[in-house]
Design a protein around this nucleic acid. Structure first.
Lengths: 196, 196
DNA sequence: CGAAAATTTGACATGACTCAACTGGAGTGG
DNA sequence: CCACTCCAGTTGAGTCATGTCAAATTTTCG
């Protein structure tokens, strides 16, 4: 039970959510569980949910024609992930999503998401504010990408998500930062050598 | 008058807006005009509006400690610009905004924006969808930043915003792409040399 | 334990940056 | 209408950050 009240508290932090609205959330959200390394969503799939992470860690990536995977997001507990575009328009998913650790999510497909926001004004406002906040973070990330060196980006990443550093394989961190795994490895070696 | 119905049509494209809601928009939105090269918002200012561009072109940038300006967005007619974070929390603006050409905007400070979204559910939904769409575009831009070469990013920019190429000084385009003006100049020279 | 994947390390290649010199318009004042 | 300045843009030489490829090592996991 504390899990659920945690979630309500977390969501209400952005926009007050009534008990009825919260009940609707749990009624519409499909609870799904994934093992470590499970594929949550295959890129190119025709149905693409938007998911609230109850527990665990998910990674969202896009695989280009050359077969390279580019990580665009790590999602942890109390965050949302999914392919928004595909969820909204029912187009084939542009991203793939993979479980980095054992994960549970509440999953909303387009119809259920639409029901949630139209039946519960608190959620409509919540998502407006959530996307607004997320947009701000994306803008900051773009600024880091265009103005920081790889080393500065790495430091920013570590200080923003200290725990992910342990959890996530380095090659995905490298991809998230926009550098090669080899270069990340060299950077870290240099970094720790300096500390002695 | 056609101007106004144009705006209503454009906004209603995302979320149906009633005539009363639209009237509220024009009542709350302060019409402001800027000359070419005018400073619309000074970075560090304590009041930071969110603006709907009626006509013209604005550029949003962040200036770092070393004095370098990093362009994060060009805004054209029917788009929104502003420092969302600063508008929402009333913190000092992180961005500066400058008019690239003569521009008119409808400007909403935090109180007026809040009034608009709480009094007009159509606008609450509109902004949820607007931010959702914008988020999608920002994610795509991040992918381009981490996976494309400078040349590929330039090509993507030109094909996405063909008109801006003419309008905006090159050095700002370079900053938007995350490269130096010199390098952009060399890239273009190479590009056009190949075409002959 | 053994195979496959992730990480590290090294030699070399290159895309993009720096700095400085040069060119060419766009304004401005005489 | 010219002369002057002042940016924006161009070009070139040299440098540095980061990438590529391949081999060695470590970790993961069946």
């Amino acid at each position: 039970m504390t899990d659920l009240t945690n979630i309500q508290a977390n969501i209400s932090h952005l926009s007050p959510i009534s008990t009825e609205e919260m009940a609707l959330f749990f009624e519409l959200g499909l609870l799904r569980k994934f093992k470590k390394n499970a594929l949550v969503l295959r890129q190119g799939e025709d149905i693409s949910p938007f998911m609230f992470i109850k527990r665990g860690c998910l990674m969202t990536y896009h695989e280009d024609e050359a077969g390279f995977k580019h990580v665009i997001q790590f999602g942890v507990a109390m965050w949302w992930t999914g392919d928004l575009q595909s969820m909204q328009d029912n187009t084939l998913s542009y991203y793939g999503i993979k479980a980095i650790s054992p994960t549970e999510v509440y999953s909303f497909d387009q119809a259920r998401f639409e029901t949630l926001v139209s039946a519960a004004p608190g959620f409509e406002r919540y998502f407006r504010l959530l996307f607004q906040k997320s947009l701000i973070n994306h803008q900051k990330r773009i600024i880091r990408n265009i103005s920081f060196s790889a080393e500065q980006r790495y430091e920013a990443f570590v200080s923003t998500f200290p725990k992910l550093e342990q959890l996530v394989p380095q090659k995905y961190v490298a991809s998230y930062l926009g550098i090669t795994p080899e270069f990340l490895s060299k950077m870290k070696a240099r970094f720790y050598r300096q500390k002695d």
